[in-house]
Nucleic acid binder design. Sequence first.
DNA 1: CGTATCGCTGAACATGTTGTCCAGTGGATA
DNA 2: TATCCACTGGACAACATGTTCAGCGATACG
Lengths: 160, 160
Amino acid sequence: MGIDALDGRIIVLLAREPRIGVLEMSRRLGVARGTVQARLDRLQSNGVIRGFGPQVDPAALGYPVTAFATLQIRQGQGADVRAHLATVPEVLELHTTTGSGDMLCRLVARSNADLQRVIDRVVGFDGIVRAATAIVMENPVPLRIIPLVEQAAEDPALRE
Amino acid sequence: MGIDALDGRIIVLLAREPRIGVLEMSRRLGVARGTVQARLDRLQSNGVIRGFGPQVDPAALGYPVTAFATLQIRQGQGADVRAHLATVPEVLELHTTTGSGDMLCRLVARSNADLQRVIDRVVGFDGIVRAATAIVMENPVPLRIIPLVEQAAEDPALRE
DNA sequence: CGTATCGCTGAACATGTTGTCCAGTGGATA
DNA sequence: TATCCACTGGACAACATGTTCAGCGATACG
């Protein structure tokens, strides 16, 4: 488990310019095409690269409001609550966290008013005891992976 | 701002099988290749599709621990704290939220012990008053967009 | 009512990339 | 020394891409 310097350069290059192909990558990295292809195959079967799905902006879809909700769950209701939240399209992400029966979920909504509807739908379920919501105002660091990849590629302790 | 049914089908298809090309998409959707190409171009210039970067799994890079930290910021120190956090590779994401001087950030670490090092580095900065950390145990709903896209494509109120 | 605009179709073309082979080379390992 | 492995550099057919074109139906506008 881990990546080397070439893997790191491949991932970073791919993250910065996703549309370039294997051939162009091999030219820029100064290695043979087959090498890049083999590395990419390995990174994908390793699970390091999960896929190349489109990154969709919820705001551009008409959901400009993002919020994080901390949910307190009644003992033993975890599975039911998970299933319930999975049915709500506005729940983009759900984590169970430390703290007895706590979950953290990322929500989007069409407006602050619409957020109320979403939260009502989220918490309108028996197993949820309490919910605390924080509305996102700014996103100074959007979800990123490049710095971590660069660190993982440099750090000998992580080599496979 | 918004998408129609064809846009929705394009995005969902792309999310499920990212490797297929424009030609294959046009075959499956039963429309002309030029139509798919034009839609994709529009979705990208609209900002609905931000890109096709690789989805990297931090766990496979050697960072299996994820945590969310709520930070309380001293008044007026927001910009400095943002700049500080941006330099920490283990900070994958940062949001400012409602609540005076509050931020929420997503962290990863190599182990629970390593998380202590990361948190020390994160909060070892003057502007941060207090930090509360929740370690992620499970991720029942990984970051997803398909249900929202399907809803946005069906909802006439969101049509552009 | 006629006309312009728009998006979609179906086709064509040259160009580039992909998937897949192969033999050869060098380093590391047993 | 012999074996394994990754990388190189090349080849080939098959395919997808970018681009352009004329035609067509629906919608909006004078």
